[in-house]
């Protein structure tokens, strides 16, 4: 899908109950178990990745995110994480609402379609962007719902979701000066910390 090293800021409490939607090989959860002694649960579809999670001693459920989270209770988790998956699911809006139904807070990352390189490829060259951030051609891509930071923030407003924090990074997980000042133009990936408005 999309793989690079975003960095999750220290927004998770020790011993928190954490659900990772699309947990992949479980690297992030395993790291949080190590650093924050979290109670981790991952959802993943690919059996090979599930096996890697089991190697790490993680609990992982094979579940299609497009089927929703109806098997989880309201506010069952402290934090629900979704990294680089939002753009690949059928209804990102429903997913966000569900994340904040089952979790007190959500952490979401996704690629910024308004990043300057994408604007150049689309606006000047007239092509759908294909680059390290978005490696797939338009006709064969899991990334069916590309959006910009601005689009995402508008959606949050519509859904009554409060943005508690935001961290803009480049593909190496580094914060850049330009990305901080003009995130929607120079940020490649953003990490959002969300909660439901009271």
């Amino acid at each position: 899908m999309i793989s690079h090293s975003y960095r999750i800021p220290d927004w998770i409490d020790n011993n928190a109950r954490v659900l990772d939607l699309g947990c992949g090989d479980g690297r992030l959860l395993a790291q949080l178990v190590e650093t924050h002694a979290i109670h981790a649960l991952g959802l993943e579809l690919d059996p090979d990745k599930i096996a890697t999670c089991l190697d790490l001693g993680l609990s992982v459920i094979q579940q299609d995110l497009d089927r929703g989270l109806s098997n989880f209770n309201d506010q069952q988790f402290d934090t629900v994480i979704m990294t680089q998956t939002l753009q690949a699911i059928r209804r990102p809006d429903l997913a966000l609402s569900e994340m904040l139904r089952v979790g007190r807070e959500a952490i979401v990352t996704f690629p910024n379609f308004a990043y300057i390189r994408n604007r150049i490829q689309l606006g000047l060259a007239g092509h759908m962007p294909v680059n390290p951030q978005l490696p797939n051609p338009w006709y064969d891509t899991p990334n069916i719902h590309l959006s910009t930071f601005r689009d995402f923030e508008e959606l949050c407003q519509t859904l009554g979701i409060q943005i508690l924090d935001k961290d803009t990074q480049n593909l190496s997980g580094k914060r850049t000066w330009l990305g901080t000042v003009w995130p929607n133009l120079f940020g490649e990936v953003a990490v959002y910390r969300l909660t439901k408005e009271p």
Partner: peptide
């Protein structure tokens, strides 16, 4: 099997599941 899994999730127990 998913009934068992869902009940364990509801109970907050450590469970892994795959549908092979």
């Amino acid at each position: 099997s998913e009934e068992i899994v869902d009940a364990l999730i509801q109970a907050g127990k450590p469970v892994s599941y795959a549908r092979l």
